[in-house]
Structure formats: C-alpha cells, structure tokens
Design a protein around this nucleic acid. Structure first.
Lengths: 304, 304
DNA sequence: GCGATTGATACCGTGGGGACATGAATGGCC
DNA sequence: GGCCATTCATGTCCCCACGGTATCAATCGC
C-alpha cells in the first residue's frame, strides 16, 4: 500500500507534539503499543527516521520536523474539506463571516447591508472568534471570509485591503505618560503589550494582537475586554485601532496618539481556493463600503 | 469513526472525475462494488449527498463540487508532505529548483553561482518540468523553489519578482506581418497562441504559455521546441521573452516587437510553508543577481 | 417490451489495527 | 555502583473493515 493516510499522520503529529508515546496515546484515546507500531510503519513507508527515541526522551529528526509542519497543513486541508463539504450540503448554505467582535473597523453593518443588495447575495452568518483566529478559521473551513486586522498569517488566503485608521495606545489613566497628548514609541519603553512583548519594540515582531507561539505570554488574552481590564490595572498597554477605542470609553483608560506607530489596517480575507459567487459578491460589497467610508474620512481626527 | 481518510477521498475524486463507477474502479485497480460502498460511507459520514446517480449518468451535487475541489487540495498536501519528508530524510538533502528549460530569463547560471557563495548553501538539483508545471511542482513537494514566468497560479506560494524583459511575438518569417518592425496586438487578429487562444485578446485570459484547462487546445504543447516548430509552419504565433528569442535564432521565424504587449516578468516562487534556510539563502542570491542584471540593462534593446 | 448497461446489495474471506501482557533499555537515585 | 522506575518495543490474539465474487434492480435504447 502506498501513500500516507490521515490516521497515521494524526498519530505522528500527536507523538511529535507530546514528545512522548504514552501521553500521545492517551490523547488519541488508545494504548501505547499500537501507536508505536503505527509510527514505525510510517517511518518504514517513508524510508525515513522521524523520531530519535531514547527511553527518556523522544525528539524529532530534521525529516520529522518537515513532516510535522507539512502534516499539520495536510490535516488542516482534510479537515477543511470536511467542514466545507458539510456546510455546502446544507439546503441553503450561508456565507460565514469570521471576525473578532469589535475588530471590524466599524464596517460590518455597512458591508452586510451592501451585500444584501447584491444579486448573488445569500444568508450570512457571523462566526465570532478569538483574537488572531480569523485566518485559521478560514483555513480550516469554518468560515468563508473574514475581516482581519493586519498583520496576519496570510498563508493560503487571498485578501483585499479595506481601510486604515489611526492606531492609539491604550494605557491606564494613572500612567504618567497619560498626561501627554502625543507619544512616541520610545516613550513606551518598559511597557508590555498583550502577549508579553515590549511595546517600544513594535512592530519588530509583527502582530500586535496575535498571541505569539514563541514567546511565553505572561497574560494570555483572547478578548478585548480582557485586554482592557489588564490595561486598567496598569499591567499592560495595548495598541488599538481608533474605531475600537470609540466603543470602549472608560474613565480608567487613556487613549493617546503615538506619532511613529503605523496605522491599523483591516483587510478582507478568504481562502485562495474559493470559487463561490457569494464570496465574490461579498468582496465587492466590502470594497465598495470601505471605499465610501475611506473617502468620507470619518476617522481622521484622532482623539476626543 | 470520524474524519475523512485519504483512501476514500481518492476514491471519490476518481468517481467524480470519471463520472462513472466502473471506470473509476478500473482506474483504482479495484472492483466496482466496494467503490460504491466507500462513496456511500463517505456520504453517510458527511451527512451529505455528493453524487446524483442514475443508472445512466453520475453527476456532482454542489456539495460534491466543493469536496472535489477541496479533496484535490488536501490530497496534494498529503502527497507533498510525503515527498518533502522523503527528500528531507536523505543524508544531505539538496535544494531542488524547478524550471522550464530556457525559461529562466538567462539568470540561472548566475543565481546558482551566487547561491554557492552563500554561507547556508547546499547542493542544488534542477527539476526540469513542462511549461506551466512549475507552480504545481512546488505545491506537490517535488521542488523547493522555482523560476517561473508570470502570470502563474500562486495559490500556496510566496514569490519575489526577479526581472522584466520585453515580450516579442514569434511568427513565421513568411507571415505578411513579419515585414513590419513593430506591431500592435490588434494586428494579430486571426492568429492563434499555443493552447488555441486568440492572440489579439491577450492577456484577457491570462497565461500566455500555460495550457488552459477550459479551452480545448488544438495543439497541446509542453516544450519550446514544439512551440517554435508550430510557429515555423505558421500554425500559431507565440509571445516569448527576449531572452528566449536570443537562444532560438531561426531563419524561418521572425521575432517582432509588439507595442502594447506587456513585458515578460519572471519571479522566484517557493511554498509558503517553507522554513528552510537553504530556500531563504537561494532567494537572497536570486534577488541579488536579478538586481545586478536589471541595473546592468543588458536586455533593454528589443531587437537585433 | 426486451436486452444491455450500470449502480446497489448480499455474502464471504483475509488482513490490519487495537488491546493486553511482557520484554528491554536508559536514567535517576540512594 | 546497583536498584528501580519509566518508557518504548515486541508478541499474541481478536475483531472489524475492506475488497472480491455473485447477483439484483433500474433505466435507457432499440
């Protein structure tokens, strides 16, 4: 028999992630011996050793690293195929829009209304996800399009820019810096962003709101209210688009302009393989709405 | 048991492509009954009907169309994982560069030399493919990077532009138009490109050299020599980058400038998921070489 | 209406995957 | 340094699932 199969790939990924056959077996709801054998068979079929085993440690070979990365992608693709097919099989499939609540640049209502006018419109469904999950939601087939703040992981996705708006820093009102009207990034030395990165090094490690997989986060945040609560108590500062700050006026939080902070960009993204007319119509609608808002310039003044 | 598996997906794709259980079974080297059952099980697991069966015809439902597209992508990803892992398991894996012979903008030798100077260089291997196959070769794991003429199918790929050079039209020397020094696209009305598209409608349907899956091609060509032979006998005309025409000076072929024909762009592409240092080094080397050549301007004069 | 074509159903045998029991090797610890 | 615990590999058995053969049913063409 030639060719990998999904089950074995899942087994390998579990072992690679746990670095431990026993724990991986537990996670897979099976016992350890058949798991060991399955991974061995995988290695035999490939003619490649994927894992260095000691009785004390399991670690990946270079080839194992390659397979771990590619297997995750392949498993994502399989899961996406399943989800999309299930959804497409429903009587009248809706268009599923993924977004983080309040991170829509204030465009959502307008876009939905414009889309409803399109000749190829269909029902829409909002898929509310955690911060930074929008792209993955598209890749794994849970949504058909997403409004997402840049930067984001665009692998496998197509996108059009929607609009840019000023980025403000949110800090505790009690912070000495809050006395000033306008700051510079360097002033924020010593302050920490959600996820634990240093605020004054932004955007060296891109992704203001995305939880970083590499750096161990002191606070793991998935929601704006969590972020704002931490801001209030002075634990962190956060960079937020103007439209978001407008929705959360809080006495204990000061929003201030930062002169050398890049603008917040919002894009509309969708899976590259998408061919549905509904997605195309939604993209058209969103572009039109964004163009209108951008020309109107409602967001040009930075504070108050 | 939940989750699709590779075997069933292959079965479904075979049936969907053949629109016939018997032929699909033959292609899969099996008999028809277990194939029918496997597809039924797939439908049961998904809770979705994928195929409308009559005893005379098998056709896809909308959900079936979705699964066919996504299953192909998923199967590609699985096959790519297998190929890349096999390759990564070799003692000292080479960097595999895919290109169509002579469609390298004349950069190949320079890039290879520059890459060899890089600190993270490794052995390189050339994967010579048919016209238009470069991108697929990257997606399915047979190569790690590719030199490819734009436009191309960039799904799943990252790329940097290398250089642009004038595009010439190759036509039979006996063609009346060959008497003129410079043409316009409209002059080519009635002439046919490789693949059967009308030359004067370029680039309405993008992809000058890619075989089109939709339009039935009168001539299927995978090689420059085949194209040039058809040009010589006056069957087609072809749009070719200047660097290619320089390599094929033929008395029976006239290369002429076309005023409103866009330049030929070459890009270096690689899989988006690539993380290897060798690929990064190769990209650096290629960018440097291309920048040098572009600045030198060797390709600026269009004819003679 | 009859036959040919084609997909579905019935039934059976074999092979592979999982559980249980056990072996072997390595690293920590006293 | 030897003992023990941890952990991965191996041996064995069992069962399910996949594939093959035989056959049925339905539809289209003549």
């Amino acid at each position: 028999m030639n060719g990998l199969d999904v089950r074995r790939l899942e087994y390998f990924v579990a072992v690679a992630e746990e670095q431990h056959f026993g724990r991986a077996a537990e996670r897979l709801h099976m016992t350890q011996p058949p798991l060991s054998r399955a991974v061995q068979q995988l290695e035999d079929e490939l003619g490649v050793t994927l894992l260095r085993r000691t009785t004390r440690r399991v670690e990946l070979t270079p080839a194992g690293e390659v397979l771990l990365r590619d297997a995750r992608i392949a498993l994502d693709a399989v899961a996406a195929a399943e989800r999309r097919t299930r959804h497409a099989g429903q009587p009248s499939p809706s268009l599923r829009i993924a977004l983080k609540a309040d991170l829509d640049a204030g465009l959502l209502q307008g876009i939905l209304a414009a889309f409803a006018e399109e000749p190829e419109a269909c029902e829409t469904e909002l898929v509310l996800v955690s911060i930074g999950e929008q792209a993955q939601t598209l890749r794994d087939g849970r949504a058909d399009a997403a409004i997402v703040p840049a930067p984001y992981d665009d692998r496998g996705l197509d996108a059009v820019p929607l609009l840019s708006e000023p980025t403000l820093v949110a800090m505790a009102a009690s912070d000495p810096l809050a006395a000033r009207d306008t700051l510079r990034l360097a002033d924020l030395a010593g302050h920490v962003l959600p996820g634990g990165r240093a605020a004054d090094q932004y955007p060296a490690n891109a992704g203001d709101l995305r939880p970083s997989a590499n750096t161990p986060a002191r606070h793991t945040v998935a929601d704006l209210t969590e972020i704002l609560r931490l801001v209030e108590i002075g634990a962190i500062v956060a960079f937020l688009p103007l439209s978001v700050t407008r929705r959360y006026p809080r006495p204990e939080i000061a929003y201030r302009a930062v002169a050398d902070l890049p603008e917040s960009e919002f894009v509309l993204a969708w899976p590259q393989q998408a061919t549905s007319r509904a997605v195309a119509a939604f993209v058209r609608a969103a572009e039109n709405v964004a163009a209108g808002v951008g020309a109107g310039g409602e967001f040009l003044d930075a504070r108050r």
